[in-house]
Design a protein around this nucleic acid. Structure first.
Length: 468
RNA sequence: GGUGGAAUGGCCGAGAGGCGAGGCAAGGGACUGCAAAUCCCUCUACACGGGUUCAAAUCCCGUUUCCACCUCCA
């Protein structure tokens, strides 16, 4: 049996994963800054790390998964002005939107989801430690800065040199000793929210909360720190700087997911609303969007297109159809089984694409088994496929994906109506009146009902709508 | 200027010295009253130029193109 190997951004190599405490894994994932509705790039990160979490759990680890919510920052304050609403209402609104998106994609809720504004005390304590240790300074205007030149290991994650960095645009207007020093805390400005500190009223500056909250929930050292590729610098460098300067071991391993791109370019908020999660969920189901996002390797760019998404949904539909037919034939749900091939792929730095090839193979075998009426082989394939989908968070039998559309009464009425039509068609086929039989089928197709004849008799399904 | 990433068949998308992942599309076939679904078969690629090697998509050198980050982007 293979063991889990994961890539580490710090060393740029893949190595065996060994947790600090046997049997336990602590993960800190940089979650959302709740200043706009989530687009698929945001949820890709959520899905990728959810797959990691599920795989670790499946592998027998007790996983503590912390994903923060940054609910105070410049953009939220700007948005509040723009939307003419209190900053906390803006933050809450978008936090809910993220939660809904995660739920729609079956991203498991974190063990804990700390908000920045709920951890001001911990941030102040951290700043006190940093000042005592001489790594940070409060120039007296209410700001607190980290002095990066005192840190020997600064920028090791992004492999840059301090002197190569371009200076911040505002470097001249601040009290910084060095233009590359960054703000842990910002002095209050009129009208902005603020909290009292020993150095004056203010608010969190750089993402100090990630260091403070990772320490609060995962301790001085923890196993995995995750986030998007774009967080490597400066966000994660600064987290490392803050935490290590405080004497903490901090993250043992760094995992970064790549972006979703559009037309070769990184998706950004300026691309408009079309790639927001709730917009895409109008064209595909959550499980299909998740399948699409999860099927690329987490470290590869995923070039988004509506066509690719639609194709992916069709491909997933084939798997889903097989599983549902298996249930019809077997009379019970498949038992999730993790095949050796799937495990080997997942252990190889979460090689989902490799795992998918195994699913395709199992699907083919399963369909052959259905044709042959080999129940044992059907069950074997269905079990393997369900086992894989379970880890990928795309198990169609997962209650999280319970069909929401239509009432039970409406569904049974529809089923009865179509069954009636199919009985008429079967009668016509028996008397070789194919014109009448085809007329019924064509009529149903026109209504968006697909008819398939099988050994078990005709079956119907709602025709998958063509994506735009 | 600094740092990092990418270029694979009609398309998507893995792999990282040697029996050409996988999927979609296309063509052919089986099955079917005809379809649909399913299965079988076919097409077969590694940006460019050198080099190393018995063997290179994979390693080395160089080039081109694209993308990203450089102090509040997942």
């Amino acid at each position: 049996m293979s063991s889990l190997h994961l890539y580490d951004t710090l060393t740029r190599t893949t190595s065996a994963f060994t947790p600090i405490k046997e049997g336990q894994v602590g993960i800190y994932l940089c979650g959302a800054t709740v200043q706009a509705p989530p687009h698929i790039g945001h949820v890709r990160s959520g899905v990728n790390f959810d797959i990691l979490r599920r795989w670790l759990t499946k592998s027998g680890y007790d996983v503590t998964f912390i994903r923060n919510v940054t609910d105070i920052d410049d953009k939220i304050l700007h948005k509040a002005v723009h939307e003419e609403s209190p900053w906390w209402a803006v933050a809450m609104k978008y936090e809910r939107a993220f939660t809904q998106a995660y739920e729609a994609l079956n991203v498991l809720p974190p063990t804990y989801e700390p908000r920045a504004t709920g951890h001001i005390t911990q941030m102040i304590e951290l700043m006190q430690i940093l000042i005592e240790r001489g790594a940070a300074y409060a120039p007296g205007n209410g700001d607190v800065y980290l002095e990066v030149r005192k840190l020997s290991s600064y920028l090791t994650l992004s492999r840059q040199k301090v002197d190569d960095l371009l200076s911040a645009a505002d470097a001249d207007e601040t009290f910084k000793k060095d233009p590359r020093d960054f703000a842990l805390w910002k002095a209050a400005k009129a009208g902005d929210p603020s909290w009292p500190t020993p150095w004056g009223a203010g608010r969190p500056g750089w993402h100090l909360e990630c260091s403070a909250m990772a320490y609060a929930y995962l301790g001085e050292s923890f196993d995995i720190h995750g986030g998007g590729l774009d967080l490597i610098f400066p966000h994660h460098e600064n987290e490392i700087a803050q935490s290590e300067a405080a004497g903490y071991g901090f993250a043992r391993r760094w995992l970064h997911n790549a972006w979703v791109t559009a037309s070769g370019e990184k998706m950004s908020k300026s691309l408009g609303n079309s790639l927001q999660v709730h917009e895409l969920l109008k064209t595909v189901r959550g499980i299909e969007l998740r399948w699409y996002l999860g099927s690329a390797h987490y470290r590869s760019m995923l070039e988004f297109s509506h066509e690719a998404l639609a194709e992916s949904a069709v491909a997933f539909g084939r798997i889903e159809t097989f599983l549902k037919r298996s249930v019809e034939i077997l009379g019970h749900l498949p038992e999730p089984v993790t095949s050796n091939g799937f495990a080997a792929a997942m252990n190889n730095d979460l090689a989902v694409p490799e795992a998918l090839a195994g699913i395709s193979e199992a699907l083919r075998c399963g369909n052959i088994a259905i044709t042959a009426g080999d129940k044992a082989a059907i069950a074997a394939s269905a079990n393997e496929i369900r086992g894989a989908l379970d880890i990928l968070g795309c198990d169609p039998f997962d209650p999280a994906f319970a069909s929401a559309g239509g009432s039970q009464d409406l569904n049974s009425a529809l089923d009865g109506t179509i069954t009636l039509a199919l009985e008429q068609r079967e009668a016509a086929r028996v008397r070789k009146d194919f014109a009448a039989a085809d007329a019924i089928r064509d009529g149903l197709i026109a209504l968006g009902i697909t008819i398939e004849d099988s050994a078990q008799g005709p079956r119907w399904s709602i025709t998958r709508s063509e994506s735009k």
